[in-house]
């Protein structure tokens, strides 16, 4: 019987070879898809560095011939000739992102606190109605919100870009789950000590939900960086966000084509900041996204 369980030297060698081949296959598969992911980033950078003359040719090399770093400066100058201040577009996006995030945090923390900690009639009903709105595609809101914002005369203002987005049912739900995990004993102890509800929220609940709050901050900032549809509707030249600037600015003089090197230089400048933030906060971002499960 013992004999059957023992592997001979030959069998062990065969098993090892088989395993090595399987591993090579797995790594090859992963490398191919990694290249699929990375090549667009490379091509963006490579196109941003080529001269416009090189881009007019029909034969193109994998690496740029001359490295025209001046394209980045030219892209900014070209935008300003079109009446778009590149730095202002960045500044707008950051400003809108910060205010949207700050507003979202205030409203969602308070609402999640009410749903998680307070007792009041109709709590479950209101919460269910909130959750039900998550099923509705955002496009339905966009139509009427555009009319609302316009009729208030808020088109082409920061408020138009911020106000409709400073609350989120999803984040309320997300935070409520975290708040509910805080043990009840802490609350009872705080009550015995005469701590008020809002002080308890500020001193105990918020610090304990720090990682969820960090996730919400990151996701909300990323949302502003990616926003396209809404700013495209309500923004004029003074309040463009990065996505809108990219698409509209780099048309060539007769308006039929695009100046590719400059557009790609601008695309690179829009992409790099977020990539740097991601590489710095990799763990928090990935944890936040996998726990929350939505984009933006």
């Amino acid at each position: 019987m013992d004999q059957e369980l023992m592997l001979t030297e030959e069998e062990l060698r065969k098993y090892k070879i088989k395993k090595t081949f399987a591993n090579i296959g797995i790594y090859a598969f992963l490398v191919i898809f990694a290249l699929f992911i990375i090549i667009p980033f490379y091509w963006m950078l490579a196109t941003a560095l080529r001269s416009e003359a090189e881009l007019q040719q029909t034969q193109i090399s994998f690496f740029p011939k001359d490295w025209v770093f001046a394209n980045f400066r030219t892209a900014i100058q070209y935008a300003s000739k079109q009446g778009v201040n590149f730095f202002k577009v960045f500044w707008n996006t950051i400003l809108v992102g910060l205010f949207t995030t700050a507003g979202t945090l205030i409203t969602t923390v308070l609402a999640a606190f009410a749903f998680a900690r307070l007792n009041f009639k109709g709590k479950e009903v209101i919460f269910s109605i909130f959750l039900a709105t998550m099923m509705i595609p955002g496009e339905i809101f966009v139509i009427s919100n555009y009319a609302t914002i316009s009729s208030w005369g808020l088109k082409d203002t920061y408020i138009a870009l911020i106000l409709p987005f400073i609350t989120s049912v999803f984040y309320i739900f997300f935070l409520r789950q975290t708040f509910r995990q805080i043990p009840n004993e802490l609350y009872l102890a705080a009550k015995v000590d005469g701590t008020g509800d809002f002080k308890y929220l500020w001193k105990v609940m918020i610090p304990m939900a720090k990682s969820t709050i960090t996730s919400i901050t990151i996701l909300s900032m990323m949302g502003s960086w990616n926003a396209y549809v809404w700013p495209n509707l309500v923004s004029g030249k003074n309040h463009l966000l990065v996505s809108n600037g990219l698409l509209s600015v780099y048309k060539d003089i007769d308006g039929t084509g695009t100046i590719l090197s400059l557009q790609m230089a601008a695309a690179t400048m829009v992409t790099i900041p977020l990539l740097i933030v991601f590489l710095l906060l990799r763990k928090q971002i990935m944890r936040g996204v996998s726990r929350s499960g939505i984009k933006g």
């Binding site: 990375i38 667009p40 196109t47 396209y228 990219l246 698409l247 590719l260 990539l275 971002i285």
Partner: peptide, 27 residues
């Protein structure tokens, strides 16, 4: 690496794909 597309701007990378598939001199 696989996560990178998630943290990029949809418009920016869409433009990159149009360059990648350009008939004249795309990759």
């Amino acid at each position: 690496i696989y996560f990178l597309p998630y943290v990029t701007n949809t418009i920016a990378l869409g433009l990159v794909f149009s360059v990648l598939f350009s008939s004249r001199n795309g990759l």
